[in-house]
Design a protein around this nucleic acid. Sequence first.
DNA 1: AGAATGTTACTGACCGGTACGTCACTTGCG
DNA 2: CGCAAGTGACGTACCGGTCAGTAACATTCT
Lengths: 202, 202
Amino acid sequence: MAKNADACDELGTGSAKITAATKIFDTARDLFYRRGIRAVGVDEIVCEAGVTKPSLYRAFKSKDELVAACLRESAREGQEEIEVAVAKAGSEPRARLDALLHHFADKLRQPDFRGCAMNNVAIELSEPGHPGRVVIEGCKTEMRSTIVQLTKELGVANAEGLADGLLLVIEGAISTHHVFGSQGPAHSMMATCDALIEAHLR
Amino acid sequence: MAKNADACDELGTGSAKITAATKIFDTARDLFYRRGIRAVGVDEIVCEAGVTKPSLYRAFKSKDELVAACLRESAREGQEEIEVAVAKAGSEPRARLDALLHHFADKLRQPDFRGCAMNNVAIELSEPGHPGRVVIEGCKTEMRSTIVQLTKELGVANAEGLADGLLLVIEGAISTHHVFGSQGPAHSMMATCDALIEAHLR
DNA sequence: AGAATGTTACTGACCGGTACGTCACTTGCG
DNA sequence: CGCAAGTGACGTACCGGTCAGTAACATTCT
């Protein structure tokens, strides 16, 4: 009873015990991100993790639930990183907004970057009822409101407009990265955001 | 010999003969776009098209080649639409650039819009050697240079920078559409592009 | 006649998912 | 103490179904 709650709780409480469930979880998250959900079968996950299939199904109700669990962790991790980056920038509004933008610019430059896990899965999982989709929508909505909050601190007249504009540029950089890599249009992300902010500050 | 060339040539020359190959091609293109490459099997394609599996493999060497053929047609169609829209706008540089932007804004509003076929497949097909990937890269590179050409006509100092900025906004609108729909941040696409153009015109 | 298509049946690999046996370790009890 | 029963974690072996792809042959249309 309450099978997959175990695996999630362990991660939440920070217990570092290496169980079959955690090995499966970590392996699946890596494989799903690198190669996609549908391209990775459960056999490959358990093989790579060095465990067996029943261990997967004892910890997670189904492959879909494993996907959702991986997405939840990715979302939590991503949001935490943003919070830390912004908090570290202090209290000056422009510095806080810049910190968020630099955070994404840094991620784009990482050699193993392969797009936003949420976006990738959203494209791959078109079925509306999939448990992973609610995670994705929640994550993206929270990110949007985070940016709105930062632009409101800036004191511009149209904070929502600027926030959505910046979000489009960030998401565009992530999207074009799949085809052009980090040296393509994504390279213009920071300059474009700066121009947008300056335009709204007038 | 040269199996799948037939199906492509027929489409290229505009011959409207309804063959098993064209039915397969049209059905596959629709299903691939709506549901994704990996989510659609060859059995479903031939069933939906009202033909049989051997007919598919008589016209196309493999499923991957069918995918590549569909992408080629999507790329050609998309580029033609852009050319037509820009040409219709006349010779005034700003009007021509606006025509391109409005073209994408219109596509985003269509109820059956499900993102850019190229981007979606690029995410789903991470294997570098896939025949579809060269189509995607060619299409996106051409689109990028089209925008650069239009911004150069505008006479701004940093034409490439503006072009990449606009590309990021467009791609961002397409990307966010998967999660937020047309009424999310994508709704700010035109206003953001305008702000960017004005900033570069100063 | 001959080209295009359909029919049927099949392959081997892989898919997500499960019934059941095994092992180590704890717990209760005389 | 000693020993059996219980408990949880794990693996072996398997299920039915679906995947992409093919061979051989019959049918239809022009």
